[in-house]
Design a protein around this nucleic acid. Structure first.
Length: 842
DNA sequence: CATATAGCAGTTTTT
DNA sequence: CTGCTATATG
């Protein structure tokens, strides 16, 4: 390997480059991963010189808190960063500072991001700061990092390096067959719920044995019996995955943690390797990820985590906000910095968002502020139906773009569930508005894609039974459920894999021996043929580039013919071709394990990752996926009870508060203009048209009626709910779902009787036309008055939840930045941020 | 025993 | 609108 990695000759990164740029920000054949010599080489290049400059250029343009965050290079650091506080900027500047000013070898820096897209964006920013050597910094998601570590060192814990990564669909399949083996009724125990409980256990690094033990101790909403059954299925599931040489997403974390914990040499190697670890979106990490971070952080303790508890929206994926508290108790010496100033949004937007989030009770209050102008009022539009909501939104985007103020690419429509995107897509097509849909039925989850990928998976990992079962009769070749079951039994009886069993049948046929299992001659032939096909494909995979291999798979499996024979197959075939185009990037050298890299990418990449915000097209995106993005114009659609908050999240306060955070995340994506939209009727899922409770928390004075802004005579000037104007959608009134709901018709009568003329204004939200809403408002307990915080004084005695009692030694800063130094009797001297630490007086 | 078709239900968010 | 299951047919 060359010791001269031509850093500076690397072509400048194309920010608007192809969406298919490698997701893993370190190329598969990267020299950086395993070249200690390179580390030395880079160290030689580094600026070892004098102490870091007290005011280097890199700090220019940063506020005081941001500078502090950049400069706190040694020891643990917790950054609580509000929305739009320049968090990403702080992280990249910090990395640049470490490299440029402190002489840290970039090879020894690991930055963990939530999505691959975030990693790519961070890389782009770093490129601009560092000019060279930024490439040596490792960036990626926990899952990608773990996958990489396991492929390299997994053998130390008995792992085969060509493991398959199972996504949720595969997991469900595996759970189903595990339940069959465990003799558990899938009707009484829905596989999804099973998986969810098992995944929760895995996210806290619990194996099935521990889960079983906890079954009797823990109080679970389902009861001990349910947990006991779960742990049994979990046990079979564990075995199935291990037999198939497959890892699910949780395993990636779990196994890596176990590797680092149990193999000291490997741990030491990574401690040496990664001297500086940064974790973005820390509020969305789970326990396993946090443990992993701790294991990766050596005695140097240079662990920097950045997060915002108010933006924690992934608890359903077992993200655990307690990690932030754990961090503070695990690293009591940690520096804590709060970034409160918002550089993104107008005052109005920030205030509206703050008001919404302030209603959460399980929350530490933290003031946000901005020097930005007040900007425009928030627009609330109340549409008649989901279609009208979409029509109005697209109209509005058109109107804005016509004035030349904004481009379509500056606008985003956000919604709670993917199903909502359809109405907007339809409208965009009707009105000729270019749009960009993020997510939706995700590419890699499409049937034809999964089928093709499954063939590749079996070629790569012949033990992968989930994939084999998926393709064994796809396209249909006469191997039905019965035959598949016989095959499974035959293989398990012999202690063989399924593919090996098929091979045996093929061998028996060539030698004209009787078929070892009792299946029809046709089935036996099909099995044998498929086994031979796989054998050939496997041989071919050693010589062919991935794209060529894919071609051969499509041809030999009959999948190509099968897809093309279908009536409306054009889209599906296009998708396959798109997959092929992606595979092109993983040729032409099969020696470099292009197939493995390709499959890994297919498993770990998500759709947001390939999304570039530079298109001049309107963005349609879910609220979850919008995290970390920003747009000059944001419209949040479906501000209705049952949708936001979602009907499945109404059971507990905890869930509702997460929905509220989701709303907050959406609102704080907006820079200049924010629109909140709701509809009175919606085909599916029917929300009943009740306005979202979150709307109630937006102060009235921040809202405006769109009618006031709109020139007369334009389309949306007429409102179907206003009796003084003609309805523009008669069809919907008569034949639509309008009158189908009793509640809806009641609302409508009430509106007419009231004779409201204000159109879509806050007025009729607040009015008593909507009984449900009124009910809700009146039944809502009044918010407890917030006690005003009186600054602490030196000498005062305080109590901390973790450190116990102590005496205040010093107080600095005010408000959000108020910091105290406390001498705790048990834990000694600690510096704390008053706004974060739960300090009690006395 | 495999397959096609019709009828049914179940629909959050994603690494 | 789609992905599964039960049923009829080949």
């Amino acid at each position: 390997m060359s010791l001269q990695p031509q850093f500076s000759e690397r072509p400048p990164r194309d920010v608007n480059g192809p969406a298919s740029a490698p997701y893993w920000e370190e190329p598969a054949s990267s020299p950086y991963w395993d070249a200690p010599e390179l580390a030395e080489h880079l160290a030689g290049q580094s600026v070892h010189g004098p102490e870091p400059d007290a005011s280097p250029a890199i700090l220019q343009g940063l506020n005081e808190a941001q500078q502090q965050a950049v400069l706190s290079t040694e020891g643990p650091l917790l950054i609580i960063a509000g929305p739009g506080s320049g968090k990403t900027r702080v992280i990249t500047h910090r990395i640049a500072y470490l490299v440029e000013e402190c002489g840290v070898n970039p090879w020894q820096i690991l930055a963990v991001t939530f999505t691959n897209k975030a990693a790519r964006e961070m890389r782009n920013r770093l490129d601009r700061l560092l000019l060279s050597r930024s490439e040596a910094v490792t960036m990626g998601t926990f899952h990608a990092v773990c996958s990489r570590i396991l492929r390299r060192h997994g053998d130390r814990i008995g792992l085969n390096p060509n493991f398959t990564i199972y996504d949720q669909d595969d997991q469900i399949d595996a759970i189903k067959s595990s339940m069959q083996l465990a003799d558990v009724d899938t009707k009484r125990f829905p596989p999804r719920a099973m998986l969810s409980r098992i995944s929760a256990a895995k996210s806290t690094l619990q194996e099935s044995r521990q889960m079983r033990e906890s079954a009797y101790a823990a109080e679970d909403e389902y009861g001990a019996n349910w947990i006991e059954t779960c742990s049994r299925v979990y046990h079979y599931y564990e075995e199935a995955l291990s037999r198939q040489n497959a890892l699910d997403f949780d395993d990636l974390l779990m196994r890596t943690a176990s590797l680092l914990k149990n193999v000291p040499e490997v741990r030491a190697q990574y401690h040496e390797r990664y001297r500086y670890l940064l974790i973005d979106e820390f509020q969305d990490t789970n326990i396993a990820q946090y443990q992993l971070a701790r294991l990766l952080t050596g005695t140097h303790q240079n662990l920097c985590v950045v997060g915002d508890p108010d933006q924690s929206i992934y608890s359903w994926r077992n993200a655990d906000i307690r990690n932030i508290l754990s961090f503070q108790s695990d690293y009591p010496d940690a520096t804590v910095i709060s970034l409160g100033e918002n550089y993104r949004s107008t005052k109005n937007i920030l205030q509206a968002a703050s008001s919404v989030i302030a209603a959460n009770t399980e929350r530490i209050e933290r003031p946000l502020f901005t020097g930005n102008p007040a900007g425009r009022p928030i627009t609330l539009h109340e549409a008649y139906s989901a279609d009208d909501e979409a029509a109005w939104a697209v109209d509005e985007v058109t109107r804005l773009t016509k004035t030349g103020e904004v481009r379509a690419g500056d606008c985003a429509i956000m919604y709670r569930i993917n199903a909502q995107s359809r109405a907007f897509e339809d409208q965009c097509m009707r009105q000729g508005m270019p749009y960009r849909l993020v997510g939706g039925v995700r590419f890699y989850h499409r049937k034809e894609i999964k089928d093709a990928v499954s063939y590749l998976r079996v070629i790569y990992n012949p033990d992968d039974e989930v994939s084999l079962r998926r393709v064994i009769n796809n396209p249909p070749r006469g191997i039905g459920a019965k035959t598949a079951q016989l095959l499974t039994r035959f293989s398990t009886d012999r202690g063989n894999t399924m593919l090996a069993a098929m091979q045996q049948i093929a061998d028996a046929r060539t030698e004209q021996l009787p078929c070892p299992i009792s299946v029809t001659a046709r089935a036996a032939k099909s099995i044998a043929d498929l086994a031979i096909t796989f054998q050939r494909l496997r041989d071919a995979s050693r010589e062919l580039a991935v794209a060529d291999l894919l071609d051969r798979v499509l041809d030999m499996s009959g999948l190509a013919r099968h897809i093309q024979a279908d009536e409306n197959s054009e889209d599906r075939w296009d998708n396959v071709q798109e997959l092929r185009a992606l595979a092109e990037e993983y040729g032409p050298s099969p020696q470099a394990d292009g197939l493995g890299a390709f499959l890994e990418r297919v498993s770990l990449v998500s759709d947001v990752d390939s999304y570039e915000q530079t298109d001049d097209a309107l963005t349609l995106i879910t609220l979850h996926q919008a995290k970390g993005l920003e747009f000059p114009v944001v419209m949040i659609a479906g501000m209705e009870e049952g949708l936001l908050p979602h009907s499945r999240s109404l059971d507990t306060i905890r869930e509702i508060e997460e929905e509220r955070r989701l709303c907050y995340v959406g609102m704080t994506r907006a820079m200049q203009r924010l629109y909140l939209l709701r509809a009175f009727s919606r085909p599916f899922p029917s929300s009943g048209g009740i306005p979202s409770r979150f709307l109630q928390d937006v102060p009235e004075e921040l809202l405006a009626s769109p009618a006031l802004e709109r020139p007369p005579g334009t389309r949306a000037d007429t409102h179907p709910l206003n009796p003084s104007r003609p309805s523009r959608n008669e069809d919907a009134v008569i034949g639509g779902s309008w009158a189908t709901s009793r509640r809806e018709s009641r609302t409508r009568r009430g509106e007419a009787g009231e004779g409201t003329t204000g159109g879509a204004t806050r007025g009729h939200l607040r009015g008593d036309i909507d009984e449900k809403l009124t009910e809700w408002v009146s039944s809502r307990p009044p918010r407890a008055p917030q006690p005003e915080r009186i600054p602490l004084t030196v000498g005062e005695i305080v109590r901390h939840s973790v450190f116990g009692e102590g005496v205040v030694q010093d107080v600095q800063g005010v408000g959000d930045d108020e910091q105290v130094t406390v001498n705790f009797s048990s834990a000694g001297l600690k510096r704390l941020l008053v706004s974060l630490a739960r300090l009690e007086r006395g």
